[in-house]
Design a protein around this nucleic acid. Sequence first.
DNA 1: TGAAATGTTGGGGCG
DNA 2: ACGCCCCAACATTTC
Length: 474
Amino acid sequence: MTTIVWFRQDLRVDDHAPLLYAAERGAVVPIFLWSPEDEGAWPVGAAARWWLHHSLTGLAASLQALGSRLIIRSGRAIDVLPALARESGADVIVCARRYEPAARAVEAALAGAMGAAFVALDASLLHQPEAIRTGGNGPYQVYTPYARNCRMQGGPSRPRLAPAALASPTRWPASSSITSLALLPTINWTGSMASAWTPGEIGARAALTAFLDGAVGTYAESRDIPAAPGTSRLSPHLHWGEISPRRAWHAVSDALRRSGDPTTKRGAEKYLAELLWREFAHHVLVHFPHTPAAPLRAEYASFPWRSDLEALRAWQRGRTGYPLVDAGMRELWATGWMHNRVRMVVASFLVKHLLIAWHDGARWFWDTLVDADLANNTLGWQWAAGCGADAAPYFRIFNPVLQGEKFDPTGTYVRRWVPELALLPDRFVHAPWKAPAAVLERAGVRLGVDYPAPIVEHTAARIRALAAADQRST
DNA sequence: TGAAATGTTGGGGCG
DNA sequence: ACGCCCCAACATTTC
């Protein structure tokens, strides 16, 4: 019996339920389908396409090592998969479930339209969105009780190894090349991304190992310091399913159990809580599928967002005049990733200081993040804007100067990404406009020439944001 | 996983 | 010795 394994956002062979399912049945035809038409309003963004290209290359190599190969096709699933099943003599198509509205619609359509049986397995989350319910049998909208409920279910089952080998079908269907999908940008702006990342399953395991050997020990504190290598940097690997959340969960909770050091225990515990934020985001997306386009809290539907293309552009390019914000936006542009603490600050700045709609921020992140994930991106932006699940209240407005002084006290992060400010002394590096003329001159900074003056004044912007929130509630 | 404004307390300077 | 004021430090309230 021949089974098609349709790889989607689960680009690994380790702990991969569909692959194990297929290997048990007999011959396996692994396929990746490039189908931007199936993604609705959210086709894979530019930075993520770069990642995908390399991840597919890695997956093809992993499958080859198991005696198999990766078939590449493009087109809508509903058009390609049934034909491919006929072509390869497969009687079952199996995949890992996805949770985005467009992806779920594709699954629903396939379930009714296939000549072959269509099976979607749970392989990308620790807890199925439908399995976690409030006392009233509804979905959660607040993280803490959601996470408590997850923890009460007990830990996820142990991850499973990849099959030792995969049997080939009697005839292999034709395949395109990965290159023919044209995922890489035509202009080579991805050099700095290549030096920051190793996409693919091997890179994912290396990142996990490095985290366990290093940052997890101080994660509870260093995760907030953007200049430090204090985070796991697993987000793109998790998004693309190059590592299963079960694998990460068990590796970290084993480290927690083995360690006698309370700091390490706290760090590991904190990381598990972060994995549950990812679960929570998917839970919310499944139960409130309108949220990528509209606020969860209906009263925000009429929020008086400003349209200001010039300000949006300054934010995107890292030229707001607020060093921490600009450093974050430049890190994003250069590496396809931004430290989470800084994501909160830049998001708050866009929606509160500039009063630009969170959708514009979500869209920019979608195109520039290698870990762009509809569930996480939507939750994060609605959190920042105050209109989502467990959201920051309207009055919680980050002061980018204070955040810089608190979490980047020596300005290391700012100097790394905003080199024109590198020579400023620590006490002015987060607020160059406060520096005396002589200090600016010595540092080689002409405000408005080498580095922009602030595009909004903090106190005035804060008052304006509070007033706008008032207008919403009346 | 906020920041600013306002309130309270207590030590020290000083008449 | 005592009361008054100032203000830093901390706590609470407000947005």
